[in-house]
Amino acid sequence: MKKLINDPADVVSEALRGIALAHPDLRVDHENKVIYRGDAPVRGKVGLISGGGSGHEPLHGGFVGMGMLDAACAGEVFTSPVPDQMAAATKAVDGGAGVLHIVKNYTGDVMNFEMAAELAEAETGVQVTSVVTNDDVAVQDSLYTAGRRGVGVTVLLEKIAGAAAEEGRSLADVAAVARKVNDNGRSMGMALTSGTVPANGKPTFDLGDDEMEIGVGIHGEPGRRRVPLATARQIAAMLVEPILSDLDFTGGDGVIAFVNGLGGTPLLELYVMYAEVATILEKSGIGVARTLVGPYITSLDMAGCSVTLLKVDDETLRLWDAPVRTPALRWGV
């Protein structure tokens, strides 16, 4: 394992120290491992918190700030934070209008956030609503599985719901905006190599030099199938086609097309992928309203990418375009 670390056990706490020093407009609670926007709680605004295992940076801590999250809770690498952390964050960001929990659909995350909501509500009476993201079409959604995983849509949802909260809308309204984003977004990812969890010291899974995993999860969960390495053009088709066959993206005001890097893939390759994705969308009669290309929800040093498409309307686009000031997304300010 070659990594820029001191001790595998200290990776999360030392990264939080770096975030606090690099972004003085944020406030970091090192004991609870929570990143806050500097002016939280914002009076009268719905508070947005998210969190999850570390290793997906910039998600979620890089999205804390004006127009997006009020707090992000960092768990150990690929391990959900514990309820104490989310309960502390919930109480700290409550500006009197309630708090929205944005939770990616993983069993541990869902249960820990659920307990945190119960704890915070019992202690201070703060009103909490949860929205669970589950956009990964690689996983069969049925009553007999844990359901689809929350992946790329989470980034878009945090931006769009964050803008709605910034406008002073109610908790019910912000939650409805968030659910609409989740309902209209779909994602699919692929890996060229496995990531390496610092505490484990070796790759989570083995992939041959001439193989790739289609439908991989952001923790290295197995995908739909393992296939021979292909060109960017072929890979784009393998990712976009399952998305398009899951939801009708034609008509309306087009899509936000998001090509995401999983941590170990250079931006040069992500733009090669974006060009292929754009070609498929054009051939399919799907208009691209906005784009996002870059590593925004990663899996440590995994090489690979994911594609997320979000069907948008005027309101969603207006909220997407609204000003945002966070370490990882920043425009209009």
Binding site: G75, E76, T79, S80, P81, V82, P83, G108, M111, N112
Partner: peptide
């Protein structure tokens, strides 16, 4: 407070 994951809850 200490286990995390699904086993903690």
């Amino acid at each position: 407070s200490t286990v995390g994951g699904a086993s903690g809850p």
